[in-house]
Design a protein around this nucleic acid. Structure first.
Length: 276
DNA sequence: ACCGGCTCCTGAAGGC
DNA sequence: TGCCTTCAGGAGCCGG
């Protein structure tokens, strides 16, 4: 499932080819994503040139002179380049046929089996789009840190694990990295957010940054997958300390990792390393 | 303002 | 062996 590191890796992978490329054609085979792909998307993009590829939270922002293409990978979405005339496979929902600057035509192909992703168009500045306007700070930016985390959790009785996944507080911390960061900070996911001390928040903010930065670094090695017609781009298996390890031994102390449910999500923790 | 629950969808996993 | 059921998950949205 694409978390922020996968989206960042995807951005870095597609950006060199996509930037300054001209969109020659847009094929939407299935418009039924999380929200309908706008019917006029093809007419809007055809003939236009990509000016920039950026990321905000888990949204990829493909900038044009007249607006922004907003792409979200949802749970199972992926982007890759394929040669022109490559037959689409099941779940290949959208193609951008591109003439990259100084290179042969190629196709940016979007696959998304579960169709939780999104392809949207926004004519104004992307930061004013309703989906982006109320987002919290980027976790790897200086705007996010212990002080911010402390301040925004003071009135939150919700569990810290759920607070971390609230995009209004901080973006890009999904289920996997919320669990992992809490483990490394020694904080149990069920603790009410407002019960975290300044020190807890400082430690937790640092482990969030470290865990995400490390995953992005690991993702760099998969960038080669973007250039060929090859396999799945950007997703990388890492060694997790708690996520998905219910019943297994803690890598630090050997205690048995516990799984619980919090707000329709799986949480995992070590009862010894995360005492409360 | 806050918070819990629902929802979209399909592949994978589990049970008999 | 195979079919049927259950479940996970990002995150917006709605109702209390």
């Amino acid at each position: 499932m694409p978390e922020l590191p996968e989206v960042e890796t995807t951005k870095r992978g597609v950006s060199p080819t996509l930037t300054r490329a001209r969109v020659d054609a847009v094929t939407v085979r299935c418009a039924a994503l999380r929200w309908p792909v706008p019917p006029e998307l093809a007419a809007t993009l055809e003939g236009a040139t990509v000016l920039s590829v950026t990321r905000r939270a888990k949204y990829l922002l493909i900038g044009f002179a007249h607006g922004t293409l907003i792409v979200h990978l949802g749970m199972s979405g992926s982007l890759r380049f394929v040669p022109p005339d490559t037959p689409p496979e099941k779940h290949d929902h959208v193609d951008l046929v591109l003439s990259p600057e100084g290179a042969m035509p190629t196709v940016l192909r979007y696959r998304d089996p579960r169709r939780f992703g999104a392809w949207l168009w926004h004519a104004g500045a992307p930061e004013h789009h309703p989906l982006l306007a109320r987002l919290g700070p980027e976790p790897l930016s200086d705007a996010f840190g212990g002080e911010h985390l402390y301040r925004v959790t003071r009135n939150k009785s919700v569990a810290i694990k759920q607070a971390l996944m609230d995009n209004a507080l901080v973006v890009g911390v999904g289920n996997i990295y919320a669990n992992e960061a809490l483990f490394h900070a020694g904080i149990r996911p069920t603790r009410p957010a407002k019960r975290l001390t300044r020190g807890d928040c400082a430690r937790l903010a640092e482990t969030i940054k470290a865990v995400l930065a490390r995953a992005i670094e690991a993702g760099g090695s998969s960038l080669r997958d973007f250039v060929g017609a090859g396999g799945e781009p950007g997703y990388f298996q890492q060694t997790y300390y708690v996520y998905g390890r219910a019943g297994e031994a803690c890598r630090h102390c050997g205690a048995t990792i516990v799984a619980i449910r919090q707000g329709q999500r799986s949480s995992y923790y070590c009862p010894h390393c995360q005492p409360c």
